[in-house]
Simulated assay, not measured.
Amino acid sequence: MGITEAALVLEDGRIFRGESFGRVGASLGEVVFSTGMTGYQETLTDPSYHRQIVVATAPQIGNTGWNDEDDESTRIWAAGYAVRDPAPRPSNWRSRRPLDEELARQGVVGIAGIDTRTVTRHLRRSGSLRGGVFSGAALASDDDMIAAVSESAGMTGAYLAADVTTVEPYVIPAEGRKRCTVAALDLGMKASIPRMMATRGMEVHVLPSSSTVEDVLMTGADGVFLSNGPGDPATADTQVALVRQVLERNIPLFGICLGHQILGRALGRATYKLPYGHRGLNIPVIDASSGAVSITAQNHGFAVEGEPREEFVTDFGRAQVSHHCANDGAVEGLRLWDGPAFSVQFHPEAAAGPHDAAPLFDQFSRLMEEAH
């Protein structure tokens, strides 16, 4: 078979030409880069990447193939995938099929053979851009492809939680002795998160993103969890209202990623779009209380306004910026001192990635125990 030509087209007119990787066709989305050297299966199946074309900064992708154990959801959510050197064949005892075969099977349009380092440097200078991957018969004139990209939807103002949330509630039982019950609001939750809570004796009731405080209370929850997810937190007014009702009832609450941003809004903070976001498995975060640095997994394009170690007053008492990014000072955590609520911008389940932050699930467990 011959090589099928492909192009990654950015809204500013920059075009990177390579060959098709996955399904042949066209796909549009926000072009972002991820610095993880491994864990591409977890990345692609993370619902937080909904409507995004992911550029892998690691030069060779696909070495471990695709297995049936590491999916973070029921499907690939990334709109497209761009790599430099795809592995010619996978080599891992758990591999069931090559990465490009899985991309094609799930209808994901990708591109290989481009200089992903140059793409990444361009995005770091210009910020994340709308883009498209075009291959085969979908390839058109440069002007036509740029026009298609320019007419596509951006991420600012996008409400996407409804696209990725569970339709019906479901329960993940605690492993061993049940210690507490958690109502987890699914905004695009990775599958490893409730598993991490279940191993700590938490019975997790996963609820749709549109759930009300009555839905939460009906679970008999000892605590509320706000998951990760895609989209602009400025659009999550329904979830912000729910969080305020939870805080008024003094129910322990823990949020990560989009959940962290929603807690920030509930505490009166604004959110904003980062130039090119934090995505990868190697991002250093500083804990304000101890000064300890954790290496974290992250995937977000928005952030909560604030300064490192800043203390501020909310409708629910005193609060503090509990963590910040060592690279750019962005807010990475919040703590409500006068109530049982905290959040982090990074991923303590870290699938795949470092496990420095895993004890945060234990902190959530202790918060619920202390509330009794």
Rank of each mutant, 00 (worst) to 15 (best):
G107R: 14
F302P: 06
T38Q: 05
G2M: 08
H122Y: 07
E248K: 15
S365F: 08
M218V: 07
R105K: 09
V344A: 08
T199F: 10
S209M: 02
D362M: 04
T271H: 09
L10F: 02
A184F: 05
P88M: 00
G220M: 03
L207N: 07
D68S: 09
R318W: 10
P252Y: 05
I61M: 10
G339N: 04
L187E: 00
T235K: 03
Q239E: 14
L217K: 14
M37F: 10
S73I: 05
H372V: 13
L367D: 00
G132K: 13
R124Q: 14
N63D: 01
M1C: 00
M202N: 00
S150L: 10
R195E: 14
L258P: 11
T219L: 03
R84A: 14
D68K: 12
V171C: 08
N299M: 13
L274P: 03
V149I: 06
V171M: 10
N92M: 03
L160K: 00
A288L: 04
A140V: 06
D362P: 00
V83P: 02
G136F: 02
S91G: 07
V213S: 11
H347R: 09
A184R: 04
L123D: 01
T57Q: 04
V213G: 02
Y170P: 01
V167W: 04
E30V: 15
P284N: 03
P230M: 03
A140D: 15
I3V: 15
A58P: 06
G201Q: 12
S192W: 05
G13K: 02
V321R: 02
A357L: 15
L281S: 13
G301R: 08
S210G: 07
N63V: 02
H323T: 01
L185H: 02
Y159E: 14
K190M: 13
G62K: 09
L185K: 08
C257F: 13
D237W: 05
R23E: 13
E349V: 12
R51E: 02
L247S: 08
N92W: 10
